[in-house]
Design a protein around this nucleic acid. Structure first.
Lengths: 355, 355
DNA sequence: CTGTTAGCGCTTTCAA
DNA sequence: TTGAAAGCGCTAACAG
């Protein structure tokens, strides 16, 4: 049972070894490595042969030190829903790799004390080239301030309403919520309940606005008794749906502003002995994995999270390039990604008459 | 709208600045930074004051270059279930931070071609100090070989049956499956169906063994018609459950070897007009987030994934310390984490008589 | 097109 | 207990 350990110093060949092997200077090897144009084809091939023969791999730390950039991107993680982080990673990881960056996930939960301080420290010590910030961290003023103070480039994903001009990837939450509500109206529903998300979350307001937009356009009155407050959690969805369904004139459809609450609404519907979608239509927002892991499967709005994450990486990489090139001003600040309505089994036309 | 960018070279103070400010040499600052003992208390305080005043943060790249270690741990990601990766991150992230490491998530999906080659490259170039490997990557021979070739320390999480002596964190899948089956037997079930996972997954076999163990111990015959094959996916669970429930003598309980398939079994049960748990008990394995996001909520086996991830980080950090200290031989190679049965609403005693 | 020189910021070694 | 010197491996800047 031999104990293998990494040698204390560089394991393999260094750039000097390669240079010697190829009969050139280290600088030429460096040029080949970085695909610079001004190297004679024959020389390039000789160097590449040497690289292959010696199985040479550049040392990232040395490169970072010399170039003053690290090719690490930070992802500020704060325990959002499982489906969200999962998709986020899928999108961000692939694109990062293609763009030549590594993705460092940093937990910045409010779980610990002084976390805002420790984030600030982390950001300065970690030497990220840039940072991707998904919700809810992307709306944390302290984090943004720390980022600005450190002069660290960042791109936010689905931030709260445009409270500033920082670069971001957004969806058309309001438009999507409106389209979903239109869909319910087209099915024939008139008493459409809505479960709101937390006030603190910008998306909550946007989605609620979209719902209101659609009702207003259709000339349907927006009754206060049809709107309940939730907190984007399963538990809060249970209570909100229960309130909606216990009202004297219950809605024939419920639009929950995220999937977790929609799933809770389905459970509550069942507990009220209602057939879904026969007696009650329920739709959600997000298309998390649970949307298809329940019965009946959930009609919902699909946010292309993976795409958004990938675009965020692209935008950040582009900005980093531009910073080096000095053309940052020309870079776009906002990219909008469209969402779709996914019709599944939890929605149907209302039965004739109420109840 | 000022355009802030990170200066091309080091933004803040360097170790030299601190040294000058404190009236000592850079070496002394370095000693304070690394909490070495041989610094006079007064000097230490002076240095620390200077660090604070200049808001100095060490440059990780420089440190890595000089020390030949990076304080980065790799996490080899291959798109497992959303709940899994989410919990994994929660556990690994917190512990990494405490241990002073950063966590770099590397996608190593079979999505791309030559991915095994590219992983091997990535591992050598990335300069990780060590690597955490969750399933399914932890059972990929090519990846393990690349790791060994690179001499990179690693810890595997829930690997396939002990096919070698590499360090690992494991659960008692077989014992847990047996306890779950015992629970069903105690409820009074005798016709207990089982939905297997894919052959390739070591856990599948272990869980099935546990099921068999319990039946054998209880003197209940293990009928072939009560066992269906699945692939740990929702879709495969639908088909497997349908096969089980369409048999002439259907089971009164189904033990699906993961939650996704159990959730599918619940959906299938509903489609067969069966009340759950009144007419059909269904239990799962994993306790992913969907387990509580459905109706009825799922009785299942809870694998403490976050704990396992945290322990993996600890074990890896310990091994890295030992490598530096030369005491690697004494390090434990395997840590076992227990799992629990979580009883929820999808299980109950069988009704009298069949059907 | 290629090489030389001089660091990047930190730590190791050795000497004081 | 402290400091001086010499790199770690790579790349910018300049020279040829």
């Amino acid at each position: 049972m031999s104990v293998k350990t990494r040698a204390n110093k560089q394991t393999g060949a260094t750039i000097k070894d390669v240079a010697q092997h190829a009969g050139v200077s280290a600088m030429t090897v460096s040029r080949v490595l970085n695909a610079e144009p001004n190297v004679r084809e024959e020389t390039r091939e000789r160097v590449q042969a040497a690289i292959r023969e010696l199985n040479y791999r550049p040392n990232l730390s040395a490169r970072s030190l010399a170039r003053a950039n690290t090719y690490f991107l930070g992802l500020l993680y704060d325990n959002p829903s499982a489906g969200y982080i999962s998709e986020l990673l899928i999108g961000a990881l692939n694109r990062s790799r293609k763009a030549g960056y590594h993705l460092v996930v940093e937990s910045c939960g409010a779980a610990e004390q002084d976390w805002e301080d420790s984030i600030a420290n982390m950001l300065r010590t970690s030497n990220f080239d840039g940072v991707i910030i998904p919700p809810p961290v992307c709306d944390n003023a302290a984090v943004l301030a720390a980022l600005d103070a450190a002069g660290l480039p960042y791109v936010r994903i689905s931030p709260d309403v445009e409270n500033d001009a920082a670069p971001r990837i957004v969806t058309d939450d309001r438009a999507a919520a409106r389209r979903m509500t239109d869909y319910l109206l087209e099915l024939g529903h008139r008493r459409i309940g809505f479960i709101r998300g937390p006030e603190t979350h910008g998306a909550s307001r946007e989605r609620f606005q979209g719902y209101c937009d659609a009702l207003a356009a259709a000339g349907v009155e927006a009754e206060a008794s049809l709107v309940a407050d939730g907190a984007f959690t399963y538990r809060s969805g249970l209570e909100a749906a229960d309130a909606l369904l216990s009202a004297p004139q219950r809605p024939t459809a419920i639009f929950a502003s995220n999937d977790d609450m929609a799933v809770a609404a389905i459970a509550t519907g069942h507990r009220h002995q209602l057939d879904i979608p026969g007696e009650l239509t329920i739709v959600g927002f997000d298309d998390t994995q649970t949307a298809t892991a329940i019965w009946p499967q959930l009609t919902t709005v699909r946010q292309p999270i993976a795409t958004m994450a990938a675009e965020a990486v692209d935008m950040l990489a582009d900005r980093l390039d531009r910073i080096r090139a000095g053309t940052l001003e020309e870079a776009p600040l906002c990219q909008e990604i469209g969402s779709d309505i996914i019709v599944r089994d939890s929605s149907a036309a209302p039965r004739d008459g109420t109840r």
